[in-house]
Design a protein around this nucleic acid. Structure first.
Length: 104
DNA sequence: TAGATGACTCACA
DNA sequence: ATGTGAGCCATCT
C-alpha cells in the first residue's frame, strides 16, 4: 500500500472543527504508522495551505510544527485557537483535542 | 537512477 | 525527565 498525499489532504478535511490530529494518526489511518515521515514531507509540500488545514497536524506529543511554513508556530497556534483549541507553550492537549478517526 | 533529506515515532540509556 | 540511536516512507536534488 502506498500513501498518496491526496489521502493525507483528504484526511485533513475530515478533521472536525476544534480537533487536531497527529502524523501518527494520519499514518495509521492510511495503513501504517511508519508513513509519519512521508506525511511531514507532504505537508511541507502542501500545495494548497488555504485548503488543507495542515495547522491541525501536530506531532505525537501534541507539539506544534516549529517548521510551519505559513508564518511560523505563532500562526499555527493562532489558527488552532481560532478553532477553539487552546494552545499552551506551543502545545495542545491531545487528550482533549486529538481527533480519533476510527482507530482503537 | 541513485543518494540524501525531513513538519515523525518508538525504544532504550 | 532529557538525550541518543534506529526504522520507516515519500519527495527532492
Amino acid at each position: 500500500m502506498i500513501m498518496n498525499k491526496q489521502q493525507v489532504y483528504d484526511f485533513l478535511l475530515t478533521i472536525p472543527k476544534g480537533k487536531v490530529t497527529t502524523y501518527g494518526q494520519i499514518a495509521m489511518h492510511l495503513g501504517n504508522i511508519r508513513f509519519a515521515r512521508g506525511i511531514g514531507k507532504i505537508l511541507h509540500n502542501n500545495p494548497d495551505p488555504d485548503r488543507y488545514p495542515c495547522y491541525k497536524v501536530v506531532n505525537a506529543k501534541g507539539e506544534l510544527s516549529h517548521n510551519y511554513a505559513f508564518g511560523g508556530m505563532p500562526a499555527q497556534e493562532s489558527r488552532l485557537k481560532a478553532d477553539g483549541i487552546e494552545v499552551t507553550n506551543g502545545r495542545v492537549d491531545l487528550n482533549q483535542y486529538l481527533y480519533r478517526s476510527e482507530i482503537e
